[in-house]
């Protein structure tokens, strides 16, 4: 009796160890390139062009210094920050208003709305880039932050509407109605009761919208020429016709990725619901 139990336990343990090792190797596969990017960012070009590659080295800040002094990364960082922040805020405000209307009032055509939002999501951005390019030249806003702000607001909007609608629907209507009966107008009820309850959802949505705009490259590269360049555009310049500036590329990658990684990992709890337009709860 106890012998079989012991055998059973041993088998269980072997199984757990195997699975654990499997999980570790999966994690290594997904994490190694990230590690490599971070470590290469602190290598001098000499160190990173040695073969075989080195895993231990004296960290150097050279790449970051170069990036900001020569590659205009400071300006691009500011552009990225300014454009993406404004666009995210605009999309959040307009989108949450629309989401509230869709969640709380009886409006027809919800399926049509679903399709429309999906189609904005699936448009290859390259399609609207030509007219935007022409219109922007005509309006004289080509290569200014405003053009990208408009574009990023648009691409964030469907996300916000869709996700926030689900978050708002998750709040029982009776809570808001109770507030209206207790003495609030509709707006005050939203402000005092609905908004505080929405805060986590708003924060998660904001992080996702921020992420997509912050990471966007194609439109940024085509709709700017010098003044309004964002970080990804600068980073792509690390590829020279004949060679790659290893260190610069990795340093730019680190600077671009850090804000998103930190923000998203903070909001992990609501991430799944946000990424799936509210269709799957995390």
């Amino acid at each position: 009796m106890s012998a079989t139990l012991a055998r059973h336990k041993a088998r269980e343990r072997r199984r757990a160890v195997t699975l654990w090792l499997l999980a570790v190797s999966v994690t290594v596969f997904f994490f190694f390139p990230v590690y490599w990017m971070f470590s290469s960012a602190f290598k001098t070009d000499e160190v990173s062009s040695t073969f075989p590659p080195v895993f231990t080295f004296a960290p150097s800040m050279d790449n970051f210094v170069h990036l900001f002094l020569e590659a205009e990364a400071g300006k691009a960082l500011w552009n990225s920050f300014f454009i993406v922040t404004i666009a995210t805020l605009l999309a959040m405000i307009a989108g949450t208003m629309a989401a509230y209307a869709l969640a709380r009032f009886d409006i027809k055509g919800k399926n049509a709305m679903a399709i429309e939002i999906l189609s904005v999501r699936m448009l290859p951005p390259i399609v609207s880039v030509i007219p935007l390019f022409m219109i922007a030249r005509w309006l004289g806003i080509f290569d200014t932050p405003w053009l990208l702000i408009a574009v990023y607001t648009l691409s964030g909007l469907p996300f916000v509407v869709w996700i926030m609608r689900v978050f708002i629907q998750d709040i029982p209507q009776s809570v808001e109605e109770a507030a209206m009966i207790d003495g609030c107008g509709r707006i005050e009820a939203f402000w005092r009761v609905t908004l505080p309850l929405l805060l986590p959802g708003l924060a998660a949505t904001m992080v996702i919208v921020f992420m997509f705009a912050w990471n966007e490259f194609l439109l940024a590269s085509l709709l700017t020429s010098s003044d309004a360049k964002t970080l990804p555009v600068i980073a792509a310049n690390a590829i020279k016709p004949k060679a790659i500036a290893f260190g610069l590329a990795c340093a730019a990658g680190v600077i671009m990725s850090m804000p998103v990684i930190v923000l998203v990992l903070m909001m992990q709890k609501y991430l799944v619901q946000g990424l799936t337009l509210g269709a799957v709860k995390g």
Binding site: S174, V175, A178, I181, G185
Partner: peptide, 15 residues
Amino acid sequence: RHRDIAMAFQDYGLY
């Protein structure tokens, strides 16, 4: 809010 009524909801409607 101007009717001076109170209401109890099925799902309570607590904040």
